[in-house]
Design a protein around this nucleic acid. Sequence first.
RNA 1: AAUACAGUAGCUCAAUUGGAAGAGUGGCUGGACUGUCACUCCAGACGGAUAGGGGUUCGAGUCCCCUCUGUAUUUCCA
Length: 586
Amino acid sequence: MYRTHNCGELRLEHAGNETTLAGWVQRTRELGGMVFVDLRDRYGITQLVFNNEQDADLCDQAKKLGREFVIQAKGEVKERMSKNPKMNTGDIEVIVSEMSVLNAAKTPPFTIENESDGGEDVRMKYRYLDLRRPVVQENIMLRHRVAQESRRYLNEMGFLEIETPFLIRSTPEGARDFVVPSRMNPGQFYALPQSPQTFKQLLMVAGYDRYYQIVRCFRDEDLRADRQPEFTQIDCEMAFVEQEDILNTFEGMMRHLMKYVHGIDVPEVPRMTYAEAMRLYGCDKPDIRFGMTFTELNDVAQNKGFKVFDDAELVVGICAEGCATYSRKQLDALTDFVKRPQIGAKGLVYVKCNEDGSFKSSVDKFFDQDALKTWADKMGAKPGDLLLVISGKTEKARKQLNELRLEMGNQLGLRKKDDYKFLWVVDFPLLEWAEEEERWVARHHPFTSPKVEDFDKMDTAPGEVRANAYDMVLNGTEIGGGSVRIHDRGLQERVFELLGMSEEESVEKFGFLMGAFEYGAPPHAGLAFGFDRMCQLMGGADAIRDFIAFPKNNSGRDVMIDAPSRIDDVQYEELCIQSVIKTEVE
RNA sequence: AAUACAGUAGCUCAAUUGGAAGAGUGGCUGGACUGUCACUCCAGACGGAUAGGGGUUCGAGUCCCCUCUGUAUUUCCA
């Protein structure tokens, strides 16, 4: 036994007890004949005391301790003379009688404190040191709690946790696969799963009617602050259920998590159709922590001689409360914001609703006070508000105004991290047009069932067919999504046809699933949550990296172990593969 | 694949118009201090091909070009 207690648990009630602690030296403070040592482990920090008068040799040893030395100390717990209310263990200290250095340590390249002096890259290189910092440990522990509470909820609901393979076959739709060469099958490759999609459907056919898995998924796509090449999903599927059952079950899971992880009671989760989300927010994952919804102005803004609006497919605006006082400089900054190449708006029209009831706009030349008043009335604007209007092709204008709305939300402090607003977005389109391939592709995945009432549009207007697909959105971030699956071979073939997949092709790629569907597939539906992203939002952080013990950087590298790396020539030979990249002559 | 920003001491950063490479912090050595808790104070030494390469110039950390690395975004992510 290296320790009888951890560094976060001793309290006044332990005073007088003998204790043995082990941990890392956070800091030493020498004070004449006394030495104080802060001993740290993941539970907390406890102060050790060495006194020259009581044991001069031991005190000398303590003076030699460096930061991050691993030590074991035995002594008596004692009430402090001068207490520290900022520490959980601040009422007590340990008068050390025996100490041993379990391992000395080099001075770390950055300070192991919540406010570390190290930059992102150094900390990633020494991730094992970064992980010692209490803030990071709290993130990792939050992740643990979210995982365990998810399991607890799903177990109680009768779900089975079942593992599915990582070495599977490459699938054509969706993201790029990571690929693994097979030594025993020369010239052939496994793929790592982008998700266990087809396996969970096969489990439904197999009769395991409530399945879940907290599982790693792999996608070889470009990374972002909220994307990693390998990430974790809470993957779920249910049989003999309808969309309503799924929404209720998993809304229940989010409530359970918020209650037991955060102590917050989440009210019933509102629902919004995809069409409504696009019309009111210009986005399929609206942040409903604040209003500022879109108002379409075509009927009041067109045919008044302003060519830009007259030629536009859509004129749409938002009302920023109390922003009529924005200066020219601020308005120019907003215009520059929407004109950035990433957003790509041609311009921005503003209307200030002055306190005296008059209006001042950037298009006064074309619209008189009465005309501007109709805008303001339509948008529900009060004196003191600022209208921001964008025009153009419907889809683009909405996307641009969405960016502006979020930016205004940020500027006005309307996006508070501790305000959790969940939302279901339902009735997604089944298909979307892929410009480059000039064909319809599945918006969710090819096994998503169309809505029965839209069946007749499948031939006439494929783009208007809605799917039984749904996303859960938290604070403007998609945290999960899923669909009711097709369980009928005939319908599945029809969808493959819509996707421009020949029968041979569909059999070649998904034959195993189609085959399974002929042996009694139950109606089933499911969804998957982005577990890392859920943790990030629940932890109020900006990057999922903070909740992954060993994350990869922007270009998919692990800078700590320096992966990926070249492999040995022998490995190439065994795997029957060649690299077309010339290796440097050594 | 593209765009923007960044790379100077272990770490965080400064360096005016192109004109002598600095500070804080950490670590090290010595000293003062028996209630500190970001301990404080004094003294000292150490610490650098300014990411790499090329160019302009009497002179480049600074200007230009290329490469590398990091971060954010776009394309992409059923």
